[in-house]
Design a protein around this nucleic acid. Structure first.
Lengths: 189, 189, 189, 189
DNA sequence: TATGAATGAGCCTTCATTCAT
DNA sequence: AATGAATGAAGGCTCATTCAT
C-alpha cells in the first residue's frame, strides 16, 4: 500500500519553513526549506501544493499554536483580571521562547499569499481570547467600541511588548508587566 | 553648484516606488517602478545605487513626511492634552489621506534591507513627537517605563487605529477618537 | 503458463494513453495516463519499461488496428477497383469513428521516441494494403516508381482526406469520394 | 539612445531555433537555442516574449520563406502547366536544400502553441500558390471539390515527395517528376 | 546623463523513474 | 504485483544590475 505520507516530514517542513522564513524572509527559496527539512525539493510539493499553500498552512499552525500557548492552564474560576494576567504571561512567554516562530508569523501575516481561508481560521483560533476580551470590554470605557477594534488594540500592545522583551531580555519582566498594565488601563480592568 | 541629477526625476522615482510598493509589495521589480516614474530602468540606478538604497531612502522620506504631517500647526502654547489631540488628528488624517504611503511605509518597515542609518534617522524625525510623549510619560503611570517602550506602545495604538479608519471609513471619526482615548488612558493624560 | 501481469490493465493503459495523447499531446505526463487508466503511476512502469516503450507499443497497436479496420470484409473476389473502394471506405470510417486514435497515431508518428522496431512492424501491418496497391501500381502510370513512394502518396492523400472528413463532417461523404477519385487518378485505376 | 534591438540577433535566434528544433524537436530548451545563437538565455526573452511566441513567429517566417522560394522566377506568361512545373521544382529544391527548415516547419505545424494569428498569416503567404491551383482546379475533374481540400491534397503530395527526395537523394529527380506527374493526374492538368 | 539591451544567476514547479511498504 | 511517496534534474521565465550607445 505504498509508503504513507509521513506526518514527520510534514512537520519537519513546517519547522524548517519557520526557521528559514525567520532567517531569510518570505523570499526564502523552497529548495532551502526542503534542504533544511532534510527532504528533496520535489518532496516539498507532495506535502504542499505550492509555496503559497505551505505558507498559508504554516501561518495557521503558528497562530493556532500561539493561541493555545496563551490559554494554557487558564484559571477558569479566577476573576477576569487574573485570567487576563495569566493569559498575558503565557503569551509573552511564548513569544520570548519562540522568537523564530514569532518573526515568521509576523512576516506571514503581511504576506499577500496567505489564503483567505487560513486568515479566517486563525481568527477562530483566537476566539477564546477574544471571548475574555469581550467580557472586559463590555464593562469598561470601550463598551461603545467594536470588538474587532479592541482586539486590534490588544494585539498591537502585545506585539510592541514582545518586541521589547525580545530585544531587551534583561528587562523582559518589567516590560511584560508594563505592557499588561497599559492594556488594563486601556480596557479599564 | 547645482546638482547634476534632476531633482524631479528623483522625486518621480520615489513617488512611483511608493505607489508600486503599495500595490505589489516589496518584490516589485525595479523596472516597473522606473516605468511608473516615466524613466528608463537604467536611470533608476543613477539615482539610487541599489534597490535596497532606494527603499532605505524612501523609508526615511515617508517617515519624515508622516512626522511632519503630524506636527503641522501644533498649538505650542496649548495644554499638553490638547497638543496631543491635535497631533493625533493630524496623524490619523495623514494616514487616511495617504493610504498608499502608509502601506508602503509599513512594508518597508519590516523589510530586511532598510539601512540601519535610515532607521536611526527616522527616529530623529519622530523626535518632536517623542518629546511631547516624554512630557506626558514622566508625569503619569508609565513614569518608570523607558521612553522607547512608551513610544512603541503609542505607535502600536496608532497603527491599529489607522487600520480601522482606513478599512472602515464610515466610522473613521469614532475609531480616531476611541484610539486617542485609549492612548490617553494608557499614558494617564 | 498464465502471464502474471493483467492483460486488462495493460489495455486500460493503452486506451488511456490514446485518449490523453489525443487531448494533451506527447508531453502528457505518465501520471495522468495512469490515473486515466485507473492505475497507480508506479504500475505503469511494470507494464512498460519507459514512457517511450509505452508510446512505441501504442503506435504499433494503433497502426495495426487501423490496418485491420481497413481490410475488414474485403471482397477478395471482386475487381481490384472495387476492393480499393471498399478498403478506402473502411479506412475513412475508422478515422472518422476514432478521431482520438487517429490524432494520437499522428502525433506518435512524428515522435522521436518510437522504436525502430515498431516502425518496421507497422509496415508489416500495412502489408496487405500494400499488396493491393502493388497490383494497381504495376499496371498503371506509376509502374516505374518505387512501391514505397506510391504507398507514401496514397497515405498522404488518405490523411488529407481524413482531415477534411473529421473537420467538416457535414460533407464527409463528398470528401471521401473526392479523395478516392484523386487516388484513382493518381494510380490510374 | 541605448543599444537598439539588433536585427542580427533576432535572425540568429530564428536560425538557431530552426536548427535546434530540427535536431531535438519542439521540446528543445530555450537555453540551448540561445546558446546556439550566441546569446544569453535572458536575451532570448527580450526578442520574443515567450517560447511559444518565438515558435509562432518562426513558423510564419519559415512558411513565408518556403512560399517565396516556390514562386521565385515564375514565368508569368507561360501556360499554366509550365508555371506549375516551375513552382514544383522550386518547391522541391527548397525542401532538399533546407532539410532543417523543412523539419522544423513540419514540427511547428503540429505544435499546439502556434498563434492562430500566425496560422492565418501563413495561409496568406501561400495565397499566390493557391491562386495557381485554383485556376487548375476550376477547369478539371476536381471542379466540384472545395479549394481547401484540393490545396490540402497538393500539400500532401508535395510533402510525401519531399520526404523521398530527402531520404533517397540518389533518385531525387525521379521522385520529383513522379510526384509532379501524380499531382497533374490528380488535378487533370 | 539617459537609455534600454545584455547578462546570467536564481526560482518555482513538473515529471520520469525508483523504491519502500 | 500494486501503490504512491521520494527523488533530483530540468526548464521557462524574471529581474537586479551593468554597459554600449
Amino acid at each position: 500500500m505504498a509508503r504513507p505520507k509521513s506526518e514527520d516530514k510534514r512537520d519537519a517542513l513546517m519547522a524548517a519553513a519557520t526557521r528559514v522564513i525567520a532567517a531569510q524572509g518570505l523570499s526564502a527559496p523552497t529548495a532551502v526549506i526542503a534542504r533544511e527539512a532534510g527532504v528533496s525539493n520535489g518532496s516539498l510539493f507532495t506535502y504542499f501544493e505550492t509555496k503559497a499553500d505551505l505558507f498559508s498552512r504554516l501561518y495557521l499552525e503558528l497562530k493556532t499554536g500561539m493561541a493555545a500557548a496563551a490559554l494554557e492552564g487558564l484559571p477558569a474560576e479566577a476573576p477576569l483580571r487574573e485570567q487576563f494576567s495569566h493569559m498575558w504571561s503565557n503569551w509573552m512567554r511564548w513569544a520570548t521562547s519562540n522568537p523564530g516562530k514569532r518573526r515568521a508569523l509576523a512576516l506571514l501575516g503581511v504576506s499577500d499569499d496567505i489564503a483567505q481561508e487560513s486568515r479566517a481560521a486563525s481568527h477562530q483560533a483566537m476566539a477564546a481570547i477574544a471571548g475574555m476580551l469581550e467580557r472586559a470590554r463590555s464593562d469598561g470605557p470601550m463598551r461603545d467600541t467594536s470588538m474587532e477594534f479592541v482586539a486590534a488594540l490588544m494585539n498591537a500592545l502585545a506585539e510592541a511588548t514582545m518586541d521589547f522583551m525580545v530585544n531587551d531580555p534583561a528587562h523582559a519582566d518589567e516590560h511584560c508587566r508594563a505592557g499588561f498594565d497599559a492594556l488594563c488601563r486601556t480596557l479599564g480592568c
